[in-house]
Computed example of a mutant assay.
Amino acid sequence: MPPKGHAILSASSADRWLHCPPSARLCESYADKGSDYAAEGTDAHALCEYKLRRALGLPAEDPTDNLTWYNEEMNDCAAGYAAYVLEQAEAAKQICADPVVLIEQRVDFSRWVEGGFGTADCIIIADGTLRVIDYKHGLGVLVSAEENPQMQCYALGALELFDGIYDIETVGMTIYQPRRDNVSTWEISKDALYRWADEVLKPTAELAFAGDGNYLCGEWCGFCKAKANCRARAEANLALAQYEFKLPPLLTDEDIEDILSKADELVSWASDIREYALRQAVSGRKWAGWKLVEGRSNRRYINDAVVADVVERAGFDPYERRVLGVTAMQKLLGKSRFGELLSPYIEKPQGKPTLVPESDKRPAMSTAEADFNENEGGQSYV
């Protein structure tokens, strides 16, 4: 993989600084602590690069022995990614005799974003079309390619390299996120992408680089280093106090709908505040009215082997034997082998009802009243 650098206005954080320009400079004062999730993602990308290079017949060194987070699931995900890219390359050959496939290509979009650069996992160029493919190993957040700022920045960087060489008219962007069974693709004309870059990206990036613009809170705050002690975020969430936390029966339907639209962010913000305060307290900070105590803990054996030996000599069986759970079993067997062996024996029960925004892609559940109304020709007697 090419060497990584640091950009104030990185493509990966573009969704945040495009919505909240001052956050770019605000985050500079925070150390980049990294996380296990990021480390796992880095390992997965290294494996994806290796699998794809091998699949394309290119020289590659197997990184497996040096991957801290390697497991069968990661291996399956990387193999699936390589297979997907090969499918796209074969599809490109249908319209172009010699499509170009680039792996881990460094791209520069600094014409619109000061110091803007990044690394595209894969770029495929065929007659009239440029496609950028990005691998996401994350499981928590479902990532869409539609109007995705990171992907658009990568696409602009790719156009900077190849627009003068190839007659590109359409730009395609794909997110490959196997652990969420998500392959999201979005296309835009080259001219429309350039308009977005000139009219939205460039002026907002100038504000962000200068530390200007207005703070704006939203779902993008979840990836902001300043999320725990950002005053703008606090003020936005404390605005819910206008409802004086009345019991739901005293609120109008409009009040409840307004609160629902903000509740997840409020809970997330409160959790971030608590986590930040705890970290500071552990480091020695004193909070008025609060103290640091030991939380609850469970008893555990000092030495499992010794315990087992003692219990066996007493005439008892210290072991339990049970089938691995679905997730653990899939990690043991690998995704493809798991499906081959066990798919006839797997069921997915109906999930617990959850209230989500209408923008959620899952189909709406049918309620008892809705079923009754449908059976009665739309008449309700409730």
Results as ranks from 00 to 15, higher is better:
Gly118Met: 00
Val307Trp: 11
Tyr194Glu: 15
Ala192Ile: 01
Arg111Cys: 09
Gln88Gly: 13
Leu161Asp: 06
Cys77Asn: 13
Asp253Gly: 13
Asp32Phe: 04
Asn182Ala: 02
Ala39Gly: 11
Met173Leu: 12
Cys122Thr: 15
Val100Gln: 10
Tyr301Pro: 09
Glu28Tyr: 03
Arg111Trp: 13
Gly116Phe: 11
Glu87Phe: 04
Cys48Arg: 09
Leu332Lys: 13
Pro3Asn: 05
Gly157Met: 07
Gly351Phe: 02
Gln280Thr: 12
Leu238Gly: 08
Leu130Pro: 01
Asp134Cys: 11
Pro249Gln: 05
Ile103His: 10
Ser144Trp: 03
Phe372Asn: 14
Val101Arg: 00
Gly41Trp: 10
Ala92Asn: 13
Ile133Arg: 05
Gln242Gly: 11
Arg296Tyr: 06
Gln242Val: 14
Ala39Leu: 12
Ala44Ile: 02
Asp198Pro: 04
Ala234Lys: 11
Arg300Asp: 07
Gly115Ile: 06
Trp17Phe: 10
Gln94Trp: 08
Lys4Val: 04
Gly140Arg: 06
Leu324Phe: 09
Gly128Met: 09
Val101Thr: 03
Gly5Ala: 03
Thr174Trp: 09
Ala210Leu: 08
Ala270Cys: 02
Arg296Ser: 10
Tyr135Glu: 07
Ala39Asn: 12
Trp290Arg: 15
Leu58Gly: 09
Leu341Ser: 00
Ile133Gly: 07
Tyr243Leu: 10
Pro21Gln: 00
Val113Gly: 01
Gly351Gln: 14
Gln94His: 14
Leu9Asp: 04
Ala234Phe: 08
Ala83Asn: 12
Glu312Arg: 10
Gly115His: 01
Ala158Tyr: 07
Gly138Asn: 05
Ala158Asn: 08
Gly334Ser: 01
Ser144Tyr: 06
Phe316Ile: 06
Tyr81Gln: 03
Cys27Phe: 08
Leu193Pro: 05
Arg313Val: 02
Asp134Gly: 10
Ser29Asn: 12
Arg53Ser: 09
Trp287Tyr: 15
Asn148Met: 02
Ile302Asp: 14
Leu260His: 02
Leu250Cys: 01
Gly339Ala: 00
Thr354Pro: 02
Leu240Val: 04
Ala192Asp: 05
Leu250Asn: 08
Ser189Gly: 13
Trp196Asn: 00
Leu216Tyr: 12
Thr68Met: 05
Gly172Met: 12
Arg296Asn: 09
Ala60Pro: 15
Thr174Asn: 11
Arg322Pro: 06
Val267Met: 13
Asp304Arg: 12
Gly377Val: 08
Pro2Trp: 11
Glu147Trp: 15
Arg131Pro: 01
Ala239Val: 02
Gly80Cys: 08
Ser184Phe: 14
Gln350His: 11
